[in-house]
Write a protein that binds this DNA or RNA. Structure first.
Length: 727
DNA sequence: AGCACGCCGACT
DNA sequence: GTCGGCGTGCTC
């Protein structure tokens, strides 16, 4: 009797392919095995996801598996089910989903022989060496970074923005020594168990009691309330049952400090999966978790796709963070998949945040998630005082009003640090001719170019194009070009003029990549000397600045009134996260928010009542207009060389779908707010329904139509289920 | 996505 | 005469 296997092949087709399992193969065909198969003129690596006894495919069309690449299945049954579920739920080609379930090394037929990554640490006899020449800034900075983080791989060093030459100079000078493995669990520092307050204790007990069954918790804890300690205690109890824990953290959340805290508490038990690892390290850790050798996996988005031996607890830290949603290809939400896996593995899932997403708060309201609140700040620190500054009719200098400047001066006089937040990098977002009104626009996008004064450049923040900064208007040749609006670079300059004796530290993508690393700047801040920090949302995540007692927010209005209905939610979260950077027990913080609309009800709620009432107000609005998370949505996007062809493609889909049912809706094609980006035109269809099944039913039909349509040249299209952006 | 097949323009 | 442009179609 012939044997068949259905294989998920890495190609963008929404189906599996049947192959004959030849008798010449020694092993028995098993679901979860990787196989090498002929596919058209190519040979590809696929994963068996079914072993049917017959097949509808014509005999002459059927091909045979070339060989089995695994002795025993490389993906366990639960992951195969997850892949199939995800392909259906996200309406994404199965083969591409399964591809992402595998570590990169296992996606190829022949495992690439890769030598283990080399790590570098400070040489033991560094004190005997001559100090680095004072002009070798890069080497000094890299050495400091390595000293601070212990051990770094070549790849991590490169990611921090240091060239190979800089590293090689340090190696040749004898300042660094080789190490085989990343810094092992703490050897000297004993693990310190912090004592719990009543709320923390209650949270730990609730989670621990739930171990062994599926349950969902929203751990709502203000910054500094000790969420991590709750996680660590719950993990301890999970380990006590002989089960494993998955901990997800946002992309920028995996600081050396976080990792250290876990490794100190659970020596020899923690695996990590993040961008700093080489491919071979990734498979090693992947296998250690699958076999059960390691009990804790700490990782970013893709870690949610790791097979576990016995998964007993899932924690998603900063669950509101947008980096949990993959923004290309298979657009999955790691947070949502975490909940799905909790249900599959019958274990509790803890979503933690100081600023929970409306999705999770909605689930709390529906009784699906149990709310655990941490209101007290650990160590008795007080919440910062928040003030709204009305800047209507006020003269601003690079966006700074008088009250904020005065408050900054006072803070510095008291020997403290100030943080000024502006979520816009560069010098100025627009360059305009004072004489004829000409605006510097991007050639490829519907956007203005941002002035980068230090580099004498105009840059497009959407496509990366650069031009040299003109000195005269290209249209009327007038010399008077004016900068419209501030960016962090301009803010830095202006603050330097106001406070010439105080160091200004700017933290944004431009300063952290150019100067090599963010860590050096952070270290500088942590010395505690009076200074002013200026920066974008990079400041809002991952780092705490205990000596900052003043947080100034320059311009939050833009986000509150953005085209996307999620604008206020995101701005509110960002605002609270930035505000949370400030102060500690003995140094209470102040937050000043400049606004042109200080009477805005959402802003009022946020400032006077806090995040939760603010979020509840937004949630009520979503309910009123039947927007997510009250309803479910999906977006079909298309981009092409002309707006017409992108819209025409989407129109064909919308026209082929049934109409008249009020239980679901489809609108479009809508051109994106910035229709042209990087030379391509973008449009979208938006599907919405309060019934998930109805949404999926019609989305499925839409995909089938889209697949069959002949596409005009160069058209690309994609499906996004539970999108976090409309465009 | 790849890759092959196929049908029309400027070249040694 | 052919090399090569990318339109179209298929992948068990």
């Amino acid at each position: 009797m012939p044997k068949f296997v259905t294989v998920a092949v890495p190609c963008p087709l929404r189906r599996g392919f049947d192959y004959l399992w030849p008798d010449t193969l020694q092993q028995e065909a098993k679901v979860g095995m990787r196989v090498s198969v002929p596919f058209g003129p190519r040979r590809l690596v696929g994963v068996i996801f079914a072993t049917p006894t017959n097949s509808d495919i014509a005999k002459q069309k059927m091909k045979s598996v070339i060989k089995a690449l695994d002795e025993s299945p490389c993906l366990p049954p639960d992951l195969i089910q997850l892949g199939l579920w995800a392909a259906a739920y996200y309406h994404h080609p199965v083969g591409e989903c399964f591809q992402q379930l595998l570590p990169i090394t296992l996606r190829k037929a022949e495992p690439a022989k890769e030598k283990p990554a080399q790590y570098w640490q400070c040489s033991d006899d560094i004190t005997n060496l001559p100090p680095l020449p004072s002009r070798a800034h890069q080497q000094q900075s890299l050495l400091a970074v390595i000293e601070q983080s212990g051990r770094l791989s070549r790849r991590q060093i490169k990611d921090l923005g240091y060239s190979n030459t800089v590293l090689n100079n340090l190696i040749n000078g004898g300042y660094l020594s080789k190490a085989e493995a990343p810094l092992a669990a703490a050897t000297s520092t004993p693990s310190t168990k912090l004592s719990l307050n009543t709320e923390q204790d209650h949270a730990v007990k609730a989670i621990s009691k739930a171990l062994g069954g599926f349950d969902r918790f929203l751990l709502d804890g203000v910054t500094g309330s000790g969420k991590t300690e709750v996680y660590l205690r719950a993990i301890e109890d999970c380990l006590g049952r002989g089960e494993q824990t998955l901990v997800l953290i946002p992309e920028i959340g995996l600081t050396p400090q976080t990792l250290q805290r876990f490794e100190q508490r659970f020596p020899t038990n923690v695996s990590t999966l993040h961008s700093g690892l080489s491919d071979s390290e990734r498979v090693q850790n992947w296998k250690k978790i699958q076999s059960g050798e390691h009990k804790i996996l700490l990782g970013t988005r893709s870690a949610v796709l790791t097979p576990f031996h016995k998964l007993g607890l899932i924690i998603v830290d900063e669950e509101h963070d947008a980096s949990y949603k993959q923004q290309d290809g298979w657009r999955y939400s790691a947070r949502d998949i975490a909940v799905k896996r909790g249900s599959d593995h019958c274990c509790p899932v803890v979503l933690g945040s100081a600023t929970p997403s409306l999705d999770s708060l909605h689930n709390v309201a529906l009784g699906r998630y149990q709310l655990l609140e941490l209101r007290e700040r650990a160590g008795g620190a007080n919440a910062p005082k928040v003030h709204l500054l009305d800047i209507r009719n006020e003269t601003l200098d690079a966006g700074l009003g008088k009250s904020l400047l005065d408050a900054t001066a006072q803070t510095l006089n008291e020997g403290n640090q100030a943080l000024i937040f502006l979520n816009r990098r560069g010098f100025s977002p627009q360059l305009q001719c004072h004489s004829c009104g000409w605006l510097a626009n991007c050639q490829a996008c519907d956007a203005t170019l941002t002035v980068h004064f230090g580099r004498r450049e105009l840059r497009c923040h959407h496509c990366g194009a650069t031009e040299t900064l003109p000195t005269i208007c290209p249209q009327c040749h007038n010399h008077e070009l004016i900068f419209q609006g501030p960016g962090t670079e301009r803010l830095e300059l202006s603050l330097k003029q106001h406070f010439p004796d105080v160091p200004i530290i700017r933290i944004d993508r431009d300063t952290t990549s150019a100067k090599g690393s963010m860590q050096l700047l952070i270290d500088d801040i942590h010395t505690g000397k009076p200074c002013i920090l200026v920066g974008t949302q990079m400041l809002a995540k991952g780092h705490h600045f205990p000596d900052v007692t003043l947080v100034g927010i320059i311009d939050i209005d833009g986000g509150l009134f953005s085209a996307d209905f999620r604008g206020p939610e995101r701005s509110g979260q960002l605002l609270i996260q930035v505000a949370g950077r400030a102060g500690r027990a003995n140094k209470p913080g102040k937050v000043y928010i400049q606004s042109h609309c200080p009477d805005h009800p959402a802003l009022q709620a946020l400032v006077n009542q806090g995040y939760q009432p603010f979020a509840q107000q937004l949630l009520a609005e979503r309910k009123l207009f039947s927007l997510p998370p009250v309803s479910f949505s999906a977006v079909i996007r298309a981009d092409a060389v002309s707006l017409e062809s992108a819209e025409a493609f989407l129109s064909q889909i919308i026209n082929a779908l049934p109409t008249g049912d009020t239980a679901w809706s489809i609108v479009g094609p809508l051109p994106a707010p910035m229709a042209r980006k990087a030379g391509r035109f973008r449009a979208a269809l938006i599907l919405q329904s309060e019934r998930r099944s109805l949404l999926h039913q019609h989305l499925h039909a839409a995909c089938e139509i889209g697949d069959q349509l002949r596409k005009p040249q160069n058209l690309r299209w994609s499906v996004d289920v539970d999108p976090i952006d409309l465009f």
